[in-house]
Amino acid sequence: MKSKDLQSVVLSKYEKGEGPTKIFRDLNGTLCLHTIKRWCKMIGQSGSIQLLKPPDYPRIVRTKGASEKVTHCLQRKKPISTRKLAGDLGISQASVQLMLREDLGLKTYKKVVEPMLTDEHKGKRNTFANWVRTNFRKEETMNIFFSDEKMFDIDGVYSSQNDRVWAVDRVDADTKGGIKPKRKFPQKVMVWLGVCSKGVTPLVIFDNDSVDHARYTQEVLPVALEYGNKVLGSQ
């Protein structure tokens, strides 16, 4: 319960004729009896609870100059850690983090990995997009069929950044599943899947990871053709 809410409760109870001890018991220790008595005294004298605000001391660490230095460091393309910033400014790492979040309103973001595109790649993509816009109407684009293959192994997917275990020490973490066993040569399987505006196709699972054009023609194309005729109609 916030301080303003507690003040309202104490004020309401006091106006109903309840004494400090009764209010203290009703709040079940949320406020100490001394504070309740002090608030009741304020209400009796002025009719309200008026708390003094703490004095505003000038900042000596998170100053405007320090914020400008941090902003200048962040504008460089070379990444820098909060620990390095703290060392350069001669302040604590916690102060740097508060400066970044509260003073500058910044948040941390992970780098996004994406394919490196050359100007030639971008030009080809623009040409293809313009070709689609010129040769296909909107309703025709709903019949476009996409497919892809993905290799999976029996060890599963593991993210060292997000898969965490909360524990008191390393031994406790290990007993709670903190060890991820990984085979040197795990068994793998390739899976094919198609998707369109109407849904997804049945999975095509290959027995081994060796897939050539012959297997693709014999095992994948019949599934894609049957599903396409079923949901999109015979083209």
Rank of each mutant, 00 (worst) to 15 (best):
K22C: 04
K22G: 04
K22M: 07
I23Q: 03
I23P: 03
I23A: 00
F24G: 01
F24D: 02
R25S: 07
R25W: 06
R25A: 04
R25G: 08
D26A: 10
D26M: 05
D26S: 11
D26K: 06
D26E: 10
L27W: 00
N28P: 00
N28M: 00
N28D: 03
N28Q: 05
G29Y: 01
G29K: 02
G29D: 04
G29C: 04
T30V: 12
T30Y: 02
T30P: 04
T30S: 04
T30W: 00
L31M: 09
L31E: 05
L31A: 00
C32H: 07
L33S: 04
L33H: 07
L33V: 06
L33K: 06
H34P: 00
H34V: 01
H34C: 04
H34W: 06
T35Y: 03
T35G: 03
I36P: 01
I36Y: 03
I36L: 01
K37M: 03
R38L: 05
R38P: 00
R38Q: 03
W39K: 01
W39P: 00
C40I: 12
K41W: 07
K41I: 07
K41P: 07
M42S: 05
M42W: 03
M42T: 00
M42K: 07
I43K: 05
I43F: 05
I43Y: 04
I43S: 10
G44W: 02
G44V: 06
G44S: 03
Q45P: 02
Q45G: 02
Q45K: 09
Q45W: 05
S46Q: 09
G47A: 08
G47V: 06
G47S: 05
G47I: 08
S48A: 15
S48V: 11
I49E: 14
I49R: 09
I49H: 14
Q50N: 14
Q50T: 12
Q50S: 08
L51I: 12
L51R: 13
L51C: 10
L51M: 13
L52W: 09
L52M: 10
L52E: 14
L52R: 12
L52A: 13
L52G: 10
K53A: 15
K53E: 15
K53G: 05
K53D: 13
K53P: 02
K53Q: 14
P54S: 13
P54C: 11
P55K: 14
P55F: 13
P55Y: 14
D56L: 15
D56Y: 14
D56W: 13
Y57A: 08
Y57S: 08
Y57W: 14
Y57P: 07
Y57G: 03
Y57D: 04
P58Y: 11
P58D: 03
P58A: 10
R59I: 11
R59C: 11
I60A: 13
V61L: 12
V61C: 12
R62N: 13
R62T: 06
R62S: 06
R62K: 14
R62Q: 09
T63F: 07
T63H: 10
T63C: 09
K64L: 14
K64Q: 13
K64P: 05
G65C: 12
G65V: 14
G65S: 15
A66K: 07
A66D: 11
